[in-house]
Design a protein around this nucleic acid. Structure first.
Lengths: 340, 340
DNA sequence: CTGAAAGCGCTTACAG
DNA sequence: CTGAAAGCGCTTACAG
């Protein structure tokens, strides 16, 4: 077994003091160039690397960022994480990941851990259950310990922290307007996240676009069976011409139910949903989707956090919006316009 | 700003020594019950929590596990991670995630970090590029520092470590035999990971099941365009009756190309693929898939690692196989058998 | 230019 | 039963 060599051992081998070795390795101007060279040479030979724990204790920094993820199986969050990791890596920061599984209890436990001093900063997407209960004390507690916090994706809360996410209202506002412009009027929404901030905002955008004197079609339920019924009603009774899917499950359920009931996409029904592009293009027919740029969200959230940790940004808390785009595939294809 | 209270401050408030406080908090039999009570009371009042960095320095443990993930956007790995996290949490271990993005260079950097003493153990799925180059020195280097290593998922390498994964050979062996039993003989494989260990094993299983005197149909390419051509040839010229998809992209590409060429699934073509169940059931038609139990793989790998770290298991290195199952949906539906 | 000393926040063998 | 001391591996203000 190899062990990493310590400063002390290095000092003994060189017949100098530990302080000298430490300073030499850190290019202190106090140390003569020759000594610096000697020290660095031997250090390289033995592949010396400072013990990170000791450095952390001294500096009272951990070089570590805590990332709270509600649901990693959701590929949106997986991609956000990869954006964070990429940015963190350039800064030499480690990422400690915690998965709340949308549980309030677990999130509280994690928040408690985070105040213990493991991390220099925290990136959080709030769990579904926490949003429903509207209990954010555990998050505020982290802030009170002066640990920088950035909220990502799920940001519609009143909290004194930086926030990075998309403009959920605008996504469905624009999508609805666009469908109207193309001549559709019976437009519905399917959603299983209507009780969450982002889900509400999406519905609002849709409502706002349609205006007050319009009929709204809303299939909303967090329970699969009940959601299924409501979607079926919307498709078969209300006979909507288009559905906006607010999340993966509601989108795909609509897509599948149309198929089972011989409703042709896009001839009889247009669909736009929140699914990932890597999958949407393979579907039969391919599915138009909202590109949320998850990687960019992760990168940006990390960037904002780093600037807080370094005190490069000491201004008021910000809310940063990442641009989105609807990628149109077959499920929103309109027939060619005919010349008169 | 709150700061966490330290042992020293607690000691001062109680008019006892730091050692006494420390021992009291750790329920040392050296300390009188009354003192223990007094100390614990004040500690609770101030929400004392030992500084993890200091404890780590003392114990030369980090309470931290490094997880190397090749590609987090692949939901298989996301689920594996959640299994690891769940198991780690029960042990009070933190997870530091590193994403190699299938890059050999990045993987080497990460391996170098890991030897610095950040982590007590490491879980690794080897990057694609590393497998192609067959350069594993950086992994062996970690082992030499006596840091326990467990390989997960991508385990077909000759390395003296514990390994947790599925039996890739058997998956496609069984699937092929099963399709044959149901009367199909022209069975093909689509794969974009044929140069990787798991990809090779899947092909071998298929070949073995068919036997030497059979025609093999193999559409293999890591490049999308070329893979597409080969699949098209297999579907249109060879007119295979079933395709086994060895990974997400090759499976979905086959599925989509069948659609574009009016090949009906399952009437004209059966498909079984490596995709995730959460998506497979929504497809039109739904897609039969190999359930790899990613969560279980993650849990098990973590379990094995923990036992090595605690020295509960000091026996020879193991190779653990997680059971898989083909979940049959519409894409492998056979017509009802008619009674004669 | 070099080194002894103090200290980061803990734990623990040892003395009293 | 309590406390002083040493030490984990580093950094840095200070003395020489």
């Amino acid at each position: 077994m190899k062990t990493r060599i310590t400063l002390k051992e290095l000092a003994k081998l060189l017949n100098v003091s530990v302080s000298t070795v430490s300073k030499a390795l850190n290019d202190s101007p106090e140390i003569s160039p020759k000594t610096i060279e000697r020290v660095k040479e031997l250090a390289a030979l033995h592949k010396y690397r400072p013990n990170p724990t000791a450095v952390n204790l001294k500096s009272s920094k951990s070089g570590t960022i805590g990332v709270l993820i509600p649901n990693i199986a959701n590929s949106f969050f997986a991609k956000v994480l990869s954006g964070m990791e990429e940015r963190a890596q350039r800064e030499g920061l480690q990422l400690i990941t915690y998965i709340s599984n949308e549980s309030h209890e677990r999130e509280k436990q994690i928040a408690e851990m985070l105040t213990a001093g493991f991390v220099d900063g925290v990136l959080i997407a709030i769990a579904e259950e926490t949003q429903r209960k509207k209990e954010f004390d555990h998050i505020k507690n982290i802030i009170q310990y002066d640990i920088p916090v950035v909220l990502y994706d799920r940001i519609d809360f009143d909290m004194p922290v930086d926030k990075v996410g998309i403009n959920d209202r605008k996504v469905f506002y624009d999508a609805t307007k666009d469908l109207q412009k193309k001549g559709l009027s019976k437009i519905g929404i399917a959603t299983s996240i209507h009780h969450m901030g982002v889900g509400k905002a999406r519905i609002e955008g849709y409502r706002e676009a349609l205006g007050d004197n319009h009929t709204f079609y809303l299939a909303n339920s967090a329970k699969k069976e009940s959601l299924k019924e409501k979607i079926l009603k919307m498709l078969l009774e209300d006979k909507v011409e288009a559905v906006l899917g607010s999340d993966f499950d509601s989108t795909m359920l609509t897509y599948r139910l149309a198929y089972e009931n011989n409703i042709r996409i896009p001839e009889d029904l247009k669909i736009i949903g929140f699914v990932r592009g890597g999958m949407a293009k393979y579907l039969t027919p391919s599915l138009s989707y909202v590109d949320q740029s998850p990687h960019k969200i992760g990168e940006t959230a990390m960037e904002v956090l780093i600037n807080r940790i370094n005190r490069k940004n000491t201004g008021p808390k910000e809310r940063i919006t990442i641009a989105t785009e609807v990628v149109h595939y077959e499920s929103t294809q309109f027939p060619e316009k005919k010349l008169l």
